[in-house]
Amino acid sequence: MNRFDFRPFILWVALFLVSVGAARAAQYCSSHIPRSTPDADFVDHGDGTVTHKETGLMWSKCLLGLSGDDCEFITDDNIHYTWQEALEAAEASTLAGYNDWRLPNIKELASIVELACYAPTINLTIFPNNPTVYVWSSSPGANNYPRYAWVLSFYLGMSDMYGRHEGNHVRLVRGGQ
């Protein structure tokens, strides 16, 4: 049976929504707060990776499932991952030819929060098109939260725990101690 393939249509709708979201959610930065992640602290390698000189960590420029110089292309029609899917996707990534990508722990993830800005609370020159969403860390919740793992909201910069079965976004990291 010849079925109509909805996938390209869904992709374009998703791309439209991401674009609209980026246009509508204008980032606000305060002039009364020092920048915690100024451009000069990063090296953009031009291959989808950036190095944060403050920590020595290399990050993926785009959230998993997005690509392009401005992270404008959607390469995965489902950019929400459960915690397990996120761990596995990081393990499988070969971004820029590296095969040691992983999820950041919660302290590493918080180290790229731009404290002077919100909606999103990240440096958009270095990490463009960052929806104001929760991003997974590799850190499981402690023993009274065994079904949760730590996430960071890049809307305001709040850290919180989310159920491991729930869907959140992923940014890859490699290197460090």
């Binding site: 915690w83 397990q84 761990l87 596995e88 990081a90 393990e91 992983r102 590799s138 499981p140 101690q177």
Partner: peptide, 14 residues
């Protein structure tokens, strides 16, 4: 099925 977790990297290992 749950590779590359927090406890497998960093000073808590090294």
């Amino acid at each position: 099925g749950y590779p590359g977790q927090d406890a497998e990297y960093g000073r808590d290992v090294t």
